[in-house]
Simulated assay, not measured.
Amino acid sequence: MIRHTVVFSLKHPEGSSEETRFLDSAMVLAGLPTVRKFERLKQVSAKNRFSHGFSMEFEDQAAYDAYNLHPLHVEFVRDRWQAEVSDFMEIDYVRI
């Protein structure tokens, strides 16, 4: 199992309609065939500069690779992520 996480901040003001539209548009990722346990998260720690997070799980590397190459994921990154995210950090985990 691979847990894919990304924390990020948006260019949009907190609570804005643009923020809501971005977060709602990310739900397309939850419906991709290999995605499990998709979550949209609000980051609340004062120790962290990011405002939001996404978390999802994949059965294995092949499932994760299929997600990365899926046309809807590629489109989301190209059309929304690159235009609206100001900073991010991606972390992928496997159980040990």
Results as ranks from 00 to 15, higher is better:
85 V>K: 00
85 V>F: 01
53 G>W: 07
69 L>S: 15
75 E>G: 07
83 A>Y: 05
86 S>L: 08
78 R>H: 02
68 N>G: 14
45 S>P: 14
56 M>P: 09
79 D>S: 03
50 F>N: 09
81 W>Q: 00
35 V>L: 07
89 M>S: 11
54 F>I: 15
90 E>Y: 08
60 D>F: 06
64 Y>G: 06
76 F>G: 01
61 Q>L: 13
74 V>Y: 00
55 S>T: 09
39 E>H: 14
79 D>K: 03
54 F>K: 06
42 K>V: 15
48 N>F: 11
64 Y>S: 11
47 K>M: 14
82 Q>W: 05
59 E>M: 05
66 A>E: 10
53 G>K: 04
52 H>F: 07
91 I>F: 13
71 P>H: 01
64 Y>C: 11
40 R>E: 05
72 L>Q: 02
43 Q>M: 15
38 F>A: 14
79 D>R: 03
33 P>Q: 04
64 Y>W: 12
70 H>I: 03
58 F>Y: 03
73 H>K: 01
87 D>S: 10
42 K>E: 13
77 V>S: 02
69 L>F: 10
43 Q>V: 13
73 H>Q: 03
55 S>L: 13
82 Q>D: 04
75 E>T: 05
53 G>Q: 00
59 E>V: 06
89 M>A: 12
57 E>S: 05
48 N>H: 11
44 V>L: 14
77 V>A: 00
74 V>A: 02
76 F>V: 00
56 M>F: 01
66 A>P: 06
83 A>R: 09
49 R>M: 10
66 A>D: 08
51 S>W: 11
82 Q>H: 07
44 V>Y: 12
38 F>S: 12
63 A>D: 08
70 H>E: 03
60 D>S: 14
92 D>A: 08
71 P>M: 02
54 F>H: 09
58 F>V: 03
57 E>I: 02
87 D>C: 11
59 E>A: 12
70 H>T: 07
46 A>E: 14
61 Q>V: 10
72 L>G: 00
88 F>W: 12
50 F>T: 09
38 F>W: 10
64 Y>N: 07
73 H>D: 02
45 S>Q: 06
92 D>L: 06
33 P>T: 04
64 Y>A: 11
33 P>C: 04
39 E>F: 14
89 M>Q: 12
36 R>D: 08
35 V>A: 10
91 I>A: 11
86 S>P: 13
33 P>G: 08
55 S>Y: 06
67 Y>F: 15
42 K>P: 13
58 F>D: 01
56 M>W: 01
47 K>D: 15
45 S>N: 07
